[in-house]
Design a protein around this nucleic acid. Structure first.
Length: 196
DNA sequence: TGAACGATTTGT
DNA sequence: CAAATCGTTCAA
């Protein structure tokens, strides 16, 4: 197969390491409407019990966060207001870490993405945000708990980006000192990175 | 620039 | 039951 899934072992590292490693990888979603995929250009690491910005802070375990306590390489989808955000579980069993996908570069199925997001959207507007890329790729709460090494939603080797920068995470102003941790990774100057 | 949207979880 | 949240869109 052309876009072979990465091995499950790849995800068994800390969320910080995984967030950096995921830059450039290809995120693929296949539905009955067709196939859509994009290169990951922006991620954020959430480090579990000690990270005040994480849903799993202080080992908070609910129906929503349950999947983060399982093995690495599973999808953690989370609904915020009217939108769906997608994370990949990192680390190992009982260590609730995850990496948020915040931006991708459209690669396959751009016409399908435009149909989902609105025909008037530019390629940049299609996927330059965590909720936007979920809608463009057709990722929903139905993908919660899915294993990322098999269809219809998986990640394969992609492209290499040379200019990867780090900075504070976005949208967590009320998380004490955790809001300043440089746990956001992004391709510098890339159009599909959120919040220029 | 600002308000509406509304699933899940926490705090009164 | 009220408020806050890893966000996006539309209206002025």
């Amino acid at each position: 197969m052309e876009f072979a899934p990465l091995p499950l072992e790849f995800y068994s590292q800390t969320s910080l390491q995984l967030a950096e490693q995921l830059i450039g990888k290809l995120l693929i979603k296949e539905t009955d409407e067709g196939i859509a995929a994009g290169f990951i250009v922006e991620t954020e690491a959430y480090a579990g019990p000690e990270d005040r910005a994480a849903h799993s802070y202080n080992n908070r375990r609910t129906a929503r966060t349950e999947v983060m306590f399982g093995p690495a390489g599973y999808i953690y989808t989370y609904q915020m207001h009217t939108h769906c955000l997608v994370n990949v579980v990192a680390a190992t069993v009982d260590v609730p870490q995850a990496v948020l996908i915040r931006g991708v570069e459209p690669y396959i199925g751009i016409d399908l993405m435009k149909r989902r997001r609105g025909e008037s959207k530019t390629d940049r507007e299609l996927t330059n945000g965590p909720g936007k890329l979920c809608k463009a790729l057709g990722i929903t709460m139905g993908d919660y708990g899915h294993c990322v090494i098999e269809k219809p939603l998986w990640i394969s080797e992609g492209r290499t980006f040379s200019d990867v920068a780090t900075g504070p995470r976005i949208g967590i102003p009320n998380s004490g000192e955790a809001k300043d941790y440089p746990w956001r990774f992004y391709v510098s100057g890339h159009p599909n990175v959120s919040k220029g």
